[in-house]
């Protein structure tokens, strides 16, 4: 850890909503981890190189409620991997990450949507997948569609695959951000949409923060990071090298990557 260590880290308290302890995950370097059945049958003689690397290693930190944390680091540093582990869609090989309360993951926004169904059906079904009951969905349906914009409303009964990718993402963003989950994970999605919509997204994110949600943001945009985050985590080749005020962490990142 650099000179900025010490901020919050190492002093976990009962109030913390995210606690990572010695988190590590190991990946195969070659894309061909996949064995063919022939190889499995022949005593696992995998012809691909067995070299592995740790996408994350020994990562420990804790985040209190209402904190806004920005993750920085160059490509391949482990930012998205960390986000996915907090979201629970990747499981650690070492250590643990504990999350109090639910997570609203703005990771694969259109992941739950099916091209053949109409946008309306998609919203109903995907909201259900994220844990909203019928009553909550009908209460929020109009909000979601309004936020996604008039074009989306016009096409509500059209098959979803006829939507432009921008419209698809809008609907996804609108849906996930209406969830009540106390933790919001954002992975680069702010880069999508036109300028007007981006402004709306910013507004929505600020609303979420002011409601006391905990935010975890991955971004390469310093402006975004400065705007939303008070605390920064800097990941370098899977290790946590800095944890401190956003401004300081950005400075350290810029200094080391320059």
């Amino acid at each position: 850890m650099g000179s900025l260590a010490g901020h919050e880290a190492g002093t976990p308290s009962a109030r913390d909503v995210i606690t990572a302890d010695g988190l590590g995950i190991e990946f195969y370097r070659s894309r061909r981890r996949k064995l063919s059945l022939r190889e499995m049958a022949l005593r696992r003689e995998n012809t691909a190189p067995k070299e592995t690397f740790w996408a994350l290693k020994d990562v420990s930190f804790s985040v209190g409620p209402g904190e806004a944390v920005g993750l920085v680091g160059s490509n391949g540093g482990g930012k998205s991997t960390l986000l996915k582990m907090i979201a629970g869609v990747l499981l650690p090989d070492e250590g643990s990450v504990k999350v109090q309360g639910g997570v609203a993951p703005l990771i694969e926004l259109t992941g739950g949507f099916l091209g053949e169904l109409s946008a309306r059906e998609n919203v109903l079904l995907t909201a259900g997948l994220h844990g909203l009951d019928k009553h909550e969905i009908s209460e929020r349906f109009d909000d979601i569609v309004d936020f996604a914009g008039p074009q989306v409303r016009q096409g509500l009964d059209m098959p979803f695959r006829h939507f432009s990718s921008g419209m698809q993402v809008r609907l996804g963003f609108a849906l996930i951000t209406t969830l009540d989950e106390p933790i919001v994970l954002v992975d680069e999605v702010l880069a999508v949409g036109d300028r007007a919509f981006r402004e709306k997204c910013y507004q929505r994110m600020e609303d979420l923060l002011s409601q006391g949600r905990t935010l975890f943001l991955v971004s390469h945009s310093e402006a975004d990071l400065r705007r939303f985050c008070t605390r920064g985590l800097y990941l370098q080749s899977g290790r946590l090298v800095a944890d401190g005020p956003m401004e300081d962490v950005l400075e350290q990142y810029n200094a080391s990557s320059a």
Partner: peptide, 9 residues
């Protein structure tokens, strides 16, 4: 795959 990757069910 997309849903498995994006939801913690």
């Amino acid at each position: 795959a997309k849903l498995v990757r994006s939801t913690n069910l």
